[in-house]
Design a protein around this nucleic acid. Structure first.
Lengths: 248, 248
DNA sequence: AAAGATTTGTCCGTATGTATG
DNA sequence: ACATACATACGGACAAATCTT
């Protein structure tokens, strides 16, 4: 094991940084789970084909981040981190799902705007293109720690008070209830991943280059009418999405 | 709009690389969808607080990747890329899902090994810890392009010929069929994201630092016995996962 | 159709940062 | 700590292609 790639020499990233990244990724993918520690510096230096000083710089940066812990005479230990599990079912609600794992959930309204439905929004909500849309930007937190930020779209004609109600109740579910929708279901979810945009880094308090999961989802009321189209962005190192396909 | 963060000097990553990453992420998050092009070099240089040449280096690297296309006198155009949609349902099979989108699918066996079940494998397959396990590493391709790599675990006592059969039939489904399992369902899936490990970069032909989606899944036969526990890794810029939610 | 503004392409030179031995 | 080699970043000037007036 311990499969490392060679250092790219004119890639715009300095050698020590590349080595730090590779060690970090190897840890994420479970490479050193058996020992719980990173190979000795001298071994790494030889593996990467670099000078001894260069590996030392790499490990020093990871130790400062808190990912590694250097112990004199013993080696370099890996610090463990766990992800919250966000369940995605037909009846997913942001607050309930994580709430069951003991986290205190809240949704904060960041901003909202009114716009005309573009093609993709109109398609998702089954409205004519150009319909008036309310777009809400929210940040969801677990125990005060921001874990997701969502951009949600609603039909303004049907839910004119959405922004006000989400702002007051700190919950989309409650805002729906206050406007006559007591229950709703998730119609579809599409998930992909990328690195966070600068704005998302700010909202989710991420370090630059962090990976996020992006979930596009559509909710409908019990008569099948589309009521919400949203793009939720999760910090991938804090959250994993759990899909339950047990009882279809 | 056009929200960029400042460039960190002496961070181990050169300015042009940081700028390239930020532009790339802005494109991914749909920042320039209205115009379909990136702001002029001089504007970017001012925004990032760097020389125009530095911005040019950044754009040059993205152009070489095929993400951007520069046209003298006109500007820098964004090249569109589309993701394949991989549906995850109770009846997901790798080859069927993408096959419906017209892609030619195949599964290639990379390697296999025999090992004793660790706690997580034993839990997932409902076997006693220490049971003999076959672990297969496969790469799945669409139209010859690798899109996913999976590490799958099987009960060796029940499926002793798994490696041989997957290697011959290029399909897990057919390998199951040859061993008496005509049908099976997906019990659970857990999705998260991170940057690719070096090994995964090689198998999926990814550039360093690419984002991958990681899906942990368990399959069971129709009597509910667990038959497969696997970790599938997808290239996030080629694939999005469509989750068909259960009506729990 | 012509002129000017905008934007990318190329050349020069200089100073600083990075990695090695 | 030092010397060397090379990549990185900056500054300026002008050419070439495209768009606007």
């Amino acid at each position: 094991m311990s499969q490392f790639s060679t250092i790219a020499r004119h890639s715009g990233i300095s050698a020590w940084k590349q080595i730090a990244d590779q060690i970090s990724r190897s840890i994420s993918s479970g490479e050193f789970d058996d020992t719980g520690m990173v190979p000795p510096e001298m071994v790494l230096a030889e593996k990467f084909g670099v000078n001894r000083h260069t590996v030392r710089s790499a490990i020093a940066s990871l130790a400062e981040e808190g990912l590694l812990k250097r112990v004199q005479g013993r080696g370099t230990l890996i610090e463990k981190r766990e992800r919250l599990i966000f369940p995605i079912t037909r009846r997913t609600r942001f607050s309930e799902g994580l709430g069951k794992q003991g986290a205190e959930m809240s949704t904060r309204l960041i901003s909202y705007e009114e716009l005309e439905a573009t093609q993709d929004i109109a398609d998702a909500l089954a409205l004519p293109p150009g319909a008036r849309i309310l777009r809400l930007r929210t940040v969801g937190s677990a125990d005060g720690q921001p874990v997701s930020t969502a951009t949600s779209h609603f039909d303004k004609a049907r839910f004119p008070r959405m922004a006000e109600l989400v702002g007051r109740h700190h919950s989309v579910t409650k805002a729906f209830a206050a406007q006559g929708v007591d229950d709703y279901v998730r119609v579809s979810t599409e998930v992909t991943g990328r690195t966070a945009a600068v704005e998302e880094e700010a909202y989710l308090k991420l370090s630059p280059g962090s990976v996020v999961l992006v979930a596009l989802s559509v909710n409908a009321d019990l008569e099948g009418r589309r009521i919400q189209y949203s793009r939720s962005v999760f910090a991938a190192d804090k959250i994993s999405l759990k899909l339950d396909t047990a009882s279809v």
